[in-house]
């Protein structure tokens, strides 16, 4: 089964896919930052949470 971070389909049977995806995202962002990239440039590729609104929007 294939999925992307933008997929709306539930993935409820393959924890492996999720953990692998988490590691892949982490590594990809790490490499991007290591090369001098900015998180802001990745906004369209990853769904970053706004940590402040996530905490304030009660």
């Amino acid at each position: 089964m294939e999925f992307t971070e933008n997929s709306a389909k539930p993935i409820n049977s393959k924890g492996a896919l999720i953990f692998k995806k988490m590691l892949e995202d982490k590594k990809a962002i790490h490499e991007y930052l290591k090369q001098g990239g900015k998180l802001a440039d990745l906004k369209s590729k990853y769904r970053f949470a706004n940590p402040l609104s996530s905490s304030r929007n009660k």
Partner: peptide, 30 residues
């Protein structure tokens, strides 16, 4: 708070960290 989607901080030794959260709702989609 340099942007809307991460926290950053700089240590006394000048090491610059960025901390961020990614939405992963499909992890517990059921």
């Amino acid at each position: 708070e340099t942007n809307d989607f991460s926290f950053e901080f700089v240590t006394d030794r000048g090491i610059h960290y960025v901390a961020y959260f990614l939405e992963y709702g499909y992890m517990f989609s059921e």
